[in-house]
């Protein structure tokens, strides 16, 4: 028999090749590399996931500016806060499920309470981990992070938007929690589009309904609205990339124009974007009806991600059907 020294099929792969297979992972490192090149004292760190978040590219380029923490997420967050006290700009990344829950207290005490410019990047958000299961699903992180005072919360729709937001963060003096996908998302944005913290991005205006989405739900929402508007319907879409501070003006403007506000998020509808929008609408006495779409206070099933998005109606077809139910 032949003993091979490597797999023969081009379809075979191992995890250190993830970023070749999945170029969407390059954006985080691209953003950080451009910050270093611009002279910013960036330090990147990861908790044994540099191949999952693409920071291996940064680590190869700037080994002296990369800290590997091993599997110690709490230590990583607290140490990043210590690094920030010395005048460096730490960006530390791990799964959103761990940042948003396991290190929640370190983020509150060491990062936000101390007002240190630490950037936390929670990747593989929502149900994007599919059959890895609930331990790896992040459907609570918006809720935990947005309840922490002085923490900016950003949910990016794709890699290019993350890259732009990372670059924009150089001028942001507050701690930030970035929530981002798995690097497999279709691109909606271009990395050269400037990212503005606290400003919703309007993709369409509509009178029947305005969709307010964030993260991985934005792209399918934009596609659905495009098709419906092509049929003569009136569907607006706002990308609420900054979940905190929330762009209240954009929400109220949409609510004054549209009969219905539909929030869509890859997150529990409790505590997340839908809850944040509900607070604004209720406080302002808006007559617009609110529908929240997302994970309905349950643990997601096990399945490949695309099957899960279809099951929870968070893919394009699902979102379109939700909108049609609303507008009739």
């Amino acid at each position: 028999m032949t003993i091979y020294t490597r797999p023969q099929s081009p379809n075979s792969w191992h995890y250190r090749e993830l970023n070749q297979k999945n170029p969407g992972l390059d954006h985080l490192s691209n953003g950080l590399i451009s910050l270093v090149e611009a002279g910013h004292p960036v330090v990147a760190g990861s908790a044994d996931l540099q191949y999952s978040n693409g920071l291996n590219r940064f680590a190869q380029r700037y080994p002296d500016r990369y800290v590997g923490f091993g599997i110690s997420e709490q230590n990583m967050v607290s140490a990043a806060a210590g690094i920030a006290t010395t005048g460096m700009m730490p960006y530390v990344a791990t799964f959103a499920s761990f940042l948003g829950l396991l290190t929640c207290e370190q983020i509150r005490m060491d990062v936000a309470y101390c007002a240190l410019p630490v950037r936390l990047i929670g990747h593989h958000t929502g149900i994007s981990m599919g059959f890895y299961g609930t331990s790896h699903h992040a459907t609570e992180d918006i809720g935990t992070m947005r309840s922490i005072a002085d923490l900016t919360v950003v949910s990016t729709a794709d890699g290019p938007q993350l890259e732009a937001a990372i670059r924009a963060s150089a001028d942001h003096d507050r701690p930030i929690y970035f929530r981002t996908g798995r690097g497999r998302e279709p691109d909606l944005y271009d990395p050269s589009q400037p990212f503005v913290f606290g400003k919703a991005i309007e993709h369409a205006r509509g009178e029947e309904v305005t969709v307010i989405a964030c993260g991985l739900s934005v792209h399918p929402a934009v596609q659905s609205a495009r098709r419906l508007n092509g049929e003569g319907r009136s569907v607006g879409v706002l990308d609420m990339a900054t979940v905190k501070p929330l762009d209240r003006d954009a929400i109220l403007e949409a609510a004054s124009r549209s009969k219905v506000i539909l929030t869509i998020e890859e997150h529990n509808i409790l505590g997340g974007l839908g809850a944040a929008v509900a607070e604004v609408l209720a406080e302002e006495g808006s007559p617009a009806r609110l529908v929240r779409h997302g994970i309905r206070d349950e643990y997601a099933l096990i399945a490949p991600p695309t099957h899960l998005y279809a099951h929870y109606r968070l893919d394009e077809a699902g979102i379109e059907s939700v909108i049609r139910e609303i507008i009739g």
């Binding site: 330090v43 210590g82 101390c114």
Partner: peptide, 20 residues
């Protein structure tokens, strides 16, 4: 030099300072 109150964080904070 650093806030505290939740026991167990400080050595990590110190690790970060030493690294920085």
């Amino acid at each position: 030099d650093f806030s505290s109150g939740s026991i167990g964080h400080a050595l990590s904070n110190g690790v970060g300072m030493a690294l920085g």
